[in-house]
Amino acid sequence: MNQIQLPAGFRDTILEECTKKNRIENTLNRVFESYGYEQIMTPAIEFYQTYAKAFHHLDERDMIKFFDKSQNILTLRMDMTVPIARAVTTRYQDKNGPFRLHYCANVYKVKSSLAGKRSVMTDCGVELIGLDAGSDLEVLTCALDGLEALDLKGYLLEIGTVRFFEEACRHADLSEQQRRTLADLIDRKSMVELKDYLNELPLRPTEKQFFLALPLLGGDQSILDTAYALSFAPSLKEIVVGLKKLAVQLNELGYGEHICFDLGKIAHLDYYTGIIFEGFVQGAGTSVLSGGRYDSLLKVFGCDLPACGFSFKVEELMDQIETAERKKKVQVVYGENKKLEAMKLAAALRKEHAVELVPGFADEVIVKEVDA
């Protein structure tokens, strides 16, 4: 090998990238702290079994695994929600919360070498543990305030709920395999395949119409009226009414122009139980934040508390923000006999400028401006 290389999916973050990353993290931390969230840090390494407990369907190929000296299987954390759920369970077993926690941390997930995606990303987010769905509004406004604080152009928070699809499957008496197949087709918006598959299932016309329309139930707040009309069971109508109430509240708080709904949104993490949402920014090819409610996750660790949270994807945001204006840089060039004089001058100049000390040959001290 002619050069020292990094593993596939990993890369260094240097120079201006570091400046942007720090700006994003500092901005988001200020927003989270303004909501009363306190910082939490967890180890980058977890037991494999911690994730095996959390997920019903865990794809081991996504994980970076290795062994400790006792031959236990370890893994680099795939997200921060599971480690935080584990930490709250072990550290606050006798307390009911609520716990408001925020973090900025690297997460690791193996990506295909041909996909050109990173295997390590930085997530900045919050977890609100111990409050029921009535606190969803707080979590959503925190996410929206984070997007606003980053001064992003054309941002939008897209809201859905896993309950709409799951409740429809329950009423239609679908098997787990049928549910999973439908979820995949709806998620991919594969309309021809979806129609063919629905024709194979023993569904009533109203049920078939519902599932066929589900991938297209996305848009502004008026889409909730369409979803209500398609709802073939009282419990489905009740879910839509809950989303309408959320929309009214967000409008009254001044966030209306930045929200939309997608009732066909399918959760890619199987621990979600309620609302799910993603943040999108003009110019970004993918979502820049994601989150949702997960009321059953902590129960698997022995602490039955409801929870909701989200995380920003820092690397996806870096191309969407401008580098903050930095202090003007100057150089103080000095000869060997003028070193202390130069250092005193540099200390004074650093109140207004970034200062580089540069050894020179002349027995004098010279201040030079550095081009940006």
Score class of each variant (00 low, 15 high):
142 C>A: 10
259 I>L: 01
255 Y>H: 02
193 E>W: 03
328 K>T: 09
254 G>N: 04
19 T>M: 08
182 L>A: 14
96 N>S: 06
189 K>Y: 10
93 Q>K: 11
249 Q>V: 05
174 L>Q: 14
160 G>W: 07
119 S>T: 06
267 A>C: 00
111 K>G: 09
192 V>Q: 14
336 E>K: 03
53 K>I: 12
343 M>K: 11
289 L>W: 02
245 K>Q: 08
16 E>D: 14
172 A>P: 15
354 A>I: 07
39 Q>R: 14
178 Q>W: 06
25 E>R: 11
333 V>A: 13
145 D>E: 10
326 R>A: 08
90 T>E: 09
142 C>L: 08
367 V>G: 11
199 N>G: 10
52 A>K: 08
183 A>I: 02
221 Q>I: 06
254 G>P: 02
219 G>H: 07
310 F>W: 08
239 I>Q: 05
54 A>T: 04
173 D>N: 15
361 F>E: 07
133 A>N: 08
308 C>R: 14
178 Q>R: 14
320 Q>Y: 00
336 E>C: 02
370 V>R: 10
300 V>Q: 05
139 V>L: 14
96 N>D: 02
242 G>P: 04
191 M>L: 15
43 P>S: 15
85 A>D: 09
356 E>N: 12
328 K>S: 12
103 Y>M: 13
121 M>P: 01
236 L>E: 12
325 E>V: 03
200 E>Q: 15
234 P>R: 15
235 S>D: 15
122 T>S: 14
204 R>I: 10
